Simulated assay, not measured.
Amino acid sequence: MKLITFDPFRTLGLPGVRYIKPEHMNQHRETLAEADWLLFPGFWQINSLHYVLKRPIFPSLSSYHLGHDKVEMTRALQTACPEHVPETLIVASDKYGIGQVLDQWRFPFVAKSVRSSQGMGVYLIENRQQFLDYAEREAVLYIQKLLPIVRDLRVVVVGEEVVASYWREGVGFLNNVSQGGRVRTDLSVPDNAISLVEGLARYLGINHAGFDVAMVDGHPYILEFNRLFGNTGIPDLNQRVQQAMSHYLLGEPSSPPSSDSKVSA
């Protein structure tokens, strides 16, 4: 099995992986063309690797294209499972879009930058001036209903497996661990959230992502997913991810899930 990675830190646990710097890609065209898998290319590389060299890439093309920004992601989710997406408006940041938001939405609501992760570029908008300040910075307005939650779920998918799921709880508006949120290990994860993510990931062909899920009165809402997710949520998450990657890419048997795999870990 010939594996080539463009991100050595994401593939540390995989045996026999060769690292090629992304910017040196065209100096190794023959080697790349003979590879069984090309791992973690940059977004700018995927068209050449997939359409020209016709090699399989990991994460999948769907993971890249649908997860490239929040606009593409949300439109796909609204088509696939509209009942599991919070009410969202996406419009241009011009006088018409700004007017539409001010006419149709009540404060408070959530506003997001279309390309951001780890809780950055996510804002709680509580008044007109905050919204106008946000609109001045952004070319696209991404407005979403503020859900009545104090914590959310992170569900990690690698290959065709849910390898971990856990609650995140913040001190303020954001629950991201990178923004000071903490992992709750004393709360069980609802089965319907796991089933939703597992089924959606397989249907859309997403094979490496961390899904953020909100639960409102027992109903799961997918907030977003991140193709490149952090591994600091639970102590052994990195090992679980590496095992699932080996199973998916190399056909190695995966370890049975631990008894706490659905309880914050």
Results as ranks from 00 to 15, higher is better:
13 G>I: 00
14 L>P: 05
2 K>R: 15
201 A>R: 00
48 S>T: 01
223 L>T: 09
209 A>V: 03
224 E>S: 05
189 V>M: 13
173 F>C: 06
60 S>V: 02
205 G>E: 03
92 A>K: 06
241 V>M: 06
180 G>M: 09
16 G>T: 06
106 R>N: 07
250 L>W: 02
148 P>K: 03
255 S>A: 15
32 L>D: 02
103 D>Q: 03
42 G>W: 03
117 S>V: 00
168 R>W: 04
249 L>M: 11
184 R>S: 11
171 V>M: 11
124 L>D: 10
192 N>Q: 08
113 S>H: 10
94 D>K: 06
186 D>I: 12
247 H>N: 14
173 F>S: 09
153 L>V: 04
162 V>N: 05
119 G>N: 03
21 K>F: 04
202 R>S: 12
98 I>R: 14
36 D>K: 13
107 F>W: 05
47 N>M: 02
246 S>F: 00
22 P>G: 05
31 T>R: 13
125 I>T: 10
166 Y>T: 01
185 T>M: 15
211 F>D: 07
171 V>G: 15
108 P>C: 00
20 I>S: 14
93 S>N: 11
172 G>H: 14
204 L>N: 09
142 Y>G: 04
16 G>L: 13
238 N>C: 00
176 N>C: 00
204 L>I: 06
97 G>K: 01
18 R>I: 09
177 V>S: 13
86 P>L: 01
258 S>L: 10
104 Q>D: 13
30 E>R: 09
50 H>K: 03
248 Y>A: 02
20 I>C: 14
57 I>F: 13
168 R>K: 14
216 V>E: 06
166 Y>F: 15
131 F>L: 03
151 R>P: 13
182 R>Y: 12
200 L>S: 04
181 G>R: 05
78 Q>A: 15
27 Q>G: 07
149 I>E: 08
138 E>T: 10
155 V>F: 05
138 E>M: 02
108 P>T: 02
85 V>M: 01
78 Q>C: 08
199 G>S: 08
101 V>Y: 04
30 E>P: 12
31 T>H: 07
77 L>F: 11
220 P>N: 00
261 S>P: 00
247 H>R: 02
220 P>A: 04
110 V>C: 03
59 P>F: 07
135 A>P: 11
57 I>Y: 09
21 K>E: 13
100 Q>Y: 09
258 S>A: 05
133 D>W: 08
155 V>I: 15
205 G>T: 07
104 Q>T: 14
10 R>H: 12
93 S>P: 07
189 V>N: 11
242 Q>G: 12
19 Y>C: 12
134 Y>C: 08
129 Q>I: 05
242 Q>I: 00
264 S>H: 13
252 E>M: 12
42 G>F: 06
167 W>G: 11
208 H>T: 01
113 S>M: 12
